[in-house]
């Protein structure tokens, strides 16, 4: 049974159709990359899954429960889906510790908090504010803040786009290890196939709001469905 099921969803903003009849399933613990160009609807797709926007048509199910459809919409805070934003969206008025513990109640487990701070390499920075951290540290904080709530599904929206190459490699390694350790299901939106290959096992290509191809790297390489996908593959298999 699919853990996340996206069925025939559509979304328009004013007259512009951003997503058109998009469908796919994701299994538990799968790491799926959503690849597309700018304006192709990748981030809109994540926002719909997270519940920040409303569907025009179709439905989304998580663990067998309908979380979005034309008729019903579960609030984002009730979905138990973690999301890491492209610009990190760290709370500037809170320090590292307060950002990490933001979603936890007063009965939080301090040992658990310390474990995550250590795991993300943020020890000694607990009292610092986001603007005092480097880009890589900010990114780790954004990931840690979501992970500490142990969501079964994590959405990563272009999280590598503001990180330099050296930090990117270590970050990918960390996300990969953590997701295995916590048995997370990942949906990773990116415009760069190289980042996707380093982190994911399955790839969805979106062009103009439509799903063009879905498969493993070998499957896609064997039969690329468009010039856009071909151009992406050339970046890896030159």
């Amino acid at each position: 049974m699919a853990f996340l099921s996206v069925n025939n969803i559509s979304k328009s903003f004013k007259e512009e159709k951003v997503l058109q009849n998009l469908s796919f399933d994701v299994k538990k613990s799968e790491r799926v990359a959503i690849i597309g160009g700018s304006g192709d609807g990748k981030s809109t797709l994540l926002r719909l899954i997270a519940g920040f926007d409303y569907l025009d048509g179709g439905q989304i199910e998580l663990n067998g429960q309908i979380i979005s459809s034309e008729l019903s919409h579960m609030a984002p805070e009730s979905r138990n889906i973690g999301m890491v934003f492209q610009n990190y969206a760290l709370f500037p008025h809170l320090n590292v510790m307060e950002n990490i513990c933001f979603g936890l109640g007063v009965d939080r487990n301090e040992t658990d908090v310390k474990k995550y701070i250590l795991m993300l390499g943020l020890e000694g920075m607990e009292a610092k504010y986001p603007h005092e951290l480097s880009g890589g540290q900010q990114q780790r904080l954004a990931i840690g803040r979501s992970l500490i709530l142990r969501p079964p599904l994590m959405l990563l929206d272009e999280v590598m786009s503001n990180v330099d190459v050296l930090n990117k490699n270590s970050l990918i390694k960390d996300i990969s290890n953590i997701s295995r350790e916590l048995d997370l299901t990942l949906l990773f939106v990116t415009h760069d196939i190289r980042d996707a290959v380093a982190l994911c096992d399955r790839f969805l290509f979106i062009e103009d709001g439509k799903l063009v191809q879905d498969g493993t790297l070998n499957e896609i390489r064997a039969n690329p469905a468009s010039d856009f996908i071909m151009a992406h593959l050339n970046l890896i298999f030159r």
Binding site: P76, I81, M83, N87, A89, F102, G103
Partner: peptide
Amino acid sequence: QSYDLINAARSLRQN
């Protein structure tokens, strides 16, 4: 205000 921050709070289960 950035609505990403508000959305981040929503994804962190804040009512």
